[in-house]
C-alpha cells in the first residue's frame, strides 16, 4: 500500500512517516527539505492551499495512493478538506491514531469537545490529517529515493506577506510544569515558598478559588478550575489542594499529577498519580534543596 504525505515542517513529516512505515506503507512524500521517506519529492516551498491541492491532484493521479496524509496543522487541515471535496474521497482530520483494517482505515480522534474519544472507520482510498505530536520519530529503513518535483502556482488567493511567529511567553494554559496551591498554604507570606519551588522547576503558578477569590492572594487569572483556567501540563504539582470537583475539572488534562497534602483522604487523591501525605512546610524546603 502507498501513502502520499505532505507536511510543511520536516519534524512533523518524520513523525508521520515513522507512523506510516509502522503500518507497512510505502511513503511518497512532498517536502521542502530533507526528510525520511521512501520517495522524496523535494519541492520548492509553497504554502498556499491552491497550489498544494493541485500538486496532490497531479501526484495522486500518477501514483494512485491508498492514503493521502497531512499533518493536522491549520494548513494541513485546510488542504486535506479542499482536496477531499475535489476528489470525493472521505476525509478525517485531527486523527490521534490510525490503523489499517483490510481495505479500510480506523482512526481515533477527540469528539464532543474532548469529552470522548471517537473511533471511526472509512474505506480506502482516504484523506487524513494526523496530529503529528502523537507520534515519535523512529529509525526505519526508508528507500530515500529523491524525485524532482515542482509545486506550481494555482489560482485562488494571493499571499502578500508572511511573518514568522515569535515564541510567546507561556501562560498557565500552555505551561509544561505548573505548581498549584490551595488552602493548605496558610499565610500569604508562605507563597514565597511556592514561588521558590516554581522557580526551580521553571513552572507557572496556579491556585484554587479561595486563594484568588476569598483571600485575594493571587490575581484571578491564576485560578485553576471550572470558572478559571484549564491546564494541560506535563507535570502538575498540587500543594495543599483538597480537590473539589470544580477545581479538578481544570487539571483533568495534566499528564502527571503529584499532590502534596496532609489529609490522607482528600478527594485530590483520586486525581493524583502520586499522592504525597506530608506536611508541606517541612517537605517543600527539603524538595527545593534537592532540585
Amino acid at each position: 500500500m502507498k501513502a502520499l504525505l505532505f507536511s510543511e515542517t520536516p519534524e512533523n513529516f518524520n513523525r508521520l512517516s515513522s507512523m506510516l512505515k509502522k503500518l507497512g506503507l510505502d511513503i511518497h512524500g512532498i517536502s521542502f527539505s530533507e526528510v525520511k521517506a521512501d520517495y522524496i519529492y523535494l519541492a520548492n516551498e509553497r504554502l498556499d492551499y491552491p497550489s498544494i491541492v493541485k500538486a496532490f491532484e497531479e501526484l495522486g493521479n500518477k501514483l494512485n495512493p491508498d492514503l493521502y496524509v497531512f499533518s493536522s496543522t491549520k494548513l494541513g487541515k485546510e488542504v486535506a478538506s479542499r482536496f477531499s471535496q475535489r476528489t470525493g474521497l472521505p476525509c478525517l482530520t485531527e486523527c490521534l491514531s490510525v490503523e489499517i483494517d483490510g481495505s479500510s482505515i480506523i482512526a481515533t480522534r477527540y469528539s464532543l469537545g474532548g469529552k470522548t474519544l471517537m473511533k471511526i472507520k472509512t474505506d480506502l482510498p482516504a484523506v487524513i490529517a494526523v496530529v503529528a505530536d502523537a507520534f515519535e520519530i523512529e529509525d526505519f529503513d526508508f528507500k530515500m529515493e529523491k524525485v524532482d518535483f515542482e509545486i506550481k502556482e494555482a489560482d485562488g488567493i494571493n499571499v502578500i506577506s508572511r511573518e514568522e511567529k515569535r515564541r510567546e511567553k507561556v501562560g498557565l494554559r500552555n505551561a509544561d510544569v505548573v505548581v498549584c496551591f490551595g488552602r493548605g498554604v496558610r499565610r500569604k507570606e508562605d507563597i514565597e515558598l511556592i514561588e521558590k519551588l516554581a522557580e526551580k522547576l521553571n513552572a507557572e503558578i496556579g491556585c484554587t478559588r479561595p486563594i484568588s477569590h476569598d483571600y485575594r492572594w493571587l490575581p484571578e487569572e491564576r485560578m485553576i478550575g471550572l470558572s478559571g483556567e484549564k491546564i494541560s501540563p506535563k507535570l502538575l504539582i498540587s500543594i495543599g489542594v483538597s480537590g473539589q470537583i470544580q477545581h479538578a475539572v481544570g487539571i483533568m488534562n495534566s499528564k502527571t499529577v503529584i499532590a502534596i497534602n496532609n489529609d490522607e483522604n482528600a478527594p485530590m487523591k483520586e486525581y493524583s498519580d502520586y499522592y504525597v501525605i506530608a506536611d508541606l512546610y517541612s517537605l517543600i524546603p527539603e524538595l527545593i534543596k534537592l532540585l
Binding site: 483520586e270 498519580d273 502520586y274 499522592y275 501525605i277
Partner: peptide, 16 residues
C-alpha cells in the same frame, strides 16, 4: 462510528 466513549481517568493514585 465504531465507538465514542470517554477516555478512562486512570490516575495511578500511588501514595508516598
Amino acid at each position: 462510528i465504531l465507538e465514542n466513549l470517554a477516555p478512562e481517568i486512570d490516575r495511578k493514585q500511588e501514595v508516598i
